[in-house]
Write a protein that binds this DNA or RNA. Structure first.
Lengths: 328, 328
DNA sequence: CCGCCCCCAGACAACGTTGTCATAGCGGCG
DNA sequence: CGCCGCTATGACAACGTTGTCTGGGGGCGG
């Protein structure tokens, strides 16, 4: 800016005025300044501006498990879009479901003075957020609440959705339904398991612990879990899988089995409708999740100081074929 | 920091020393300072630190078309990973294939003094990058070069891959192969079309313009394009589709056709192997693309000042079924 | 002709840090 | 006892901006 001022033969303050479109600069002067800016390729330093102004940095932080998962990448896109409408940029980070990494990312974001944080929380302890929130950084939690921190939270109806899946399968005559869930230290996994139990209870099914496997997270372990519930003496005839990854693994594992069980997956995924058979899912809109959370965040930034909200987004069962298999 | 200093009864400089783990602070003093930091929830302001130090902001910018596209979200994840190893955070933005948006994002990133930029360039004019590059911001282009700017570029072998797809189809007896490509102002679309022509030439096929459709970008227009090449008087018996989106649309459009043509898609995608028939693709590793570009960028940040490099990553044809259909 | 006001422009401080230099205190050694 | 050198600390300026205040000149009315 100094260089620009020198080149244009004005003071640095006048350059600042031109850069900020402030009124009261002689058009001729402004022209000279603009020419100098152009010539030197000057770009105002937003960091310094924010420091001086004490104003927003124009960024929000987004922390999730893994952008590579379509569920989160759709969510990310939605957040980006809302942020853009509010003139903000997005800092992203994947925690890989490691609490320490989530914490490091969040604190790093805060040190960079993001205007707000959107977090898909991992693990159980989130007390590290308290000082930041007290310091005025609004935090919105997505997809899961944080056990020990009260903040705005946007969830999907995990319990209702899983219960609905069970009801659906029971309506086709299934009495022995298995549940494959994620690790029990993940909130959504626990909720969906609860929904599963509830669904069993409502449909008058016996809840059999033998048919519940929590924790398999890769293709091999999902396949093993399926063998366990399908190859026993009293096998399941239908399966509810707890998230999009597991559903895909399950489809893969079941592809070459002669006696395929009925399958309903939690989370929709691309091409589910083109598989053979098309996969019935409990769908929810992850873009809507991101949008709702981001809107909530910007609401807070806009001055909304109502008590923390908890929003639960609806899910809906999409029958496609894999879940409408009767008993053979 | 002032408050911390006051509370600990030391000068602000001593607080700075403690925060930065500088040697030569009395342990007792350090303890008092740390206690004050804890009590006040003090978090050092990275922006101010960078301003004073004139050092890196510890961020890199990543601009691509759309994070929601799995191709880009895998890439994003790889970039995040490399950045993390180099202690950097990632600012992301989706350009939606709009040059103006790409430009705005890039300049916004530069105003925030990112250490470097990774860009999947959209459109043909990227001169706006020149001042930034001259100012010392390294730029690496991914997936496509920028017509009018010389910078490090990481590409995939578009021509070779598409030619290979044609060769593969011809080896199953196909003589009339159609090509569905993206809009011709996208570099990869043009390259793949060139690869298609080259493949036709090498396989001794007549290159028939009637069988080439460039530009369809949603489900409806892909379906229309397919009708055009399949329902004419002299129809195609095989189709090469130009990217992952189009392949998926094509699969959907072909799902209920009795006379399905052979199909090879450019870009691999999840579940391609589970469709019926499984989809043969020209696969490349988008994570490797992101990794290579990020490594290149950090190499530049590490002082590598060799002339701009152009890296071309290999592709490989993955036969799965849809491309191994002979003539009926 | 004088005084006032308006239009432009610049001087200066401050935002939150940190690098540089200065200084106070203290123990040891000749 | 005086000097040296070391340790622990602080004062100050500067990073690149911008808000506030001040000042010079010109036009206009009295």
């Amino acid at each position: 800016m100094n260089d620009v001022a020198r080149l244009a033969g004005v003071s640095i303050k006048t350059v600042s005025r031109v850069v900020n479109d402030e009124a009261g600069v002689h058009p001729g002067t402004a022209e000279r300044v603009l020419a100098a800016i152009e010539q030197l390729g000057f770009r105002s330093n937003v960091g310094a501006r924010n420091l001086r102004r004490g104003s927003s940095t124009g960024t929000v932080g987004l922390i999730l498990e893994d952008v590579a998962n379509p569920f989160y990448s759709l969510l990310t896109r939605a957040v980006e879009e809302v942020a853009r409408h509010h003139g903000r940029l997005v800092l992203t980070g994947s925690s890989d479901a490691e609490p320490a990494r989530e914490r490091d990312l969040a604190l790093e974001f805060c040190a960079r003075r993001v205007d707000g944080l959107l977090i898909v929380p991992t693990g159980l302890r989130h007390g590290y957020l308290v000082p930041e929130m007290r310091a005025g950084t609004p935090v919105v939690l997505l997809d899961r609440p944080a056990g020990d921190v009260v903040a705005d939270t946007v969830l999907v109806d995990n319990i209702g959705g899983t219960a609905e899946a069970v009801r659906h399968l029971a309506s086709f005559g299934h009495r022995r339904v298995a549940f494959l869930g994620d690790s029990p230290d993940i909130y959504t996994a626990v909720e969906r398991l609860r929904g599963f139990r509830e669904g069993c209870a409502r449909a008058g099914l016996h809840y059999d612990e033998e048919l519940v496997v929590m924790g398999p997270h890769d293709e091999r372990s999902v396949a093993a879990a399926l063998r366990r519930v399908l190859d026993g003496p009293n096998p399941a005839t239908a399966v509810v899988s707890g998230n999009n990854r597991m559903t895909v693994y399950a489809v893969r594992a079941l592809a070459h089995r002669p006696d395929r069980p009925a399958l309903v997956g939690f989370d929709d995924f691309e091409l589910a409708d083109l598989l053979d058979p098309p996969v019935t899912v409990v769908a929810h809109d992850s873009a809507a999740l991101g949008r709702a959370a981001a809107e909530l965040l910007f609401g807070r930034l806009g001055g909304d100081s109502a008590p923390p909200r908890r929003v639960v987004l609806p899910v809906r069962l999409v029958p496609r074929g894999s879940g409408e298999v009767g008993l053979s």
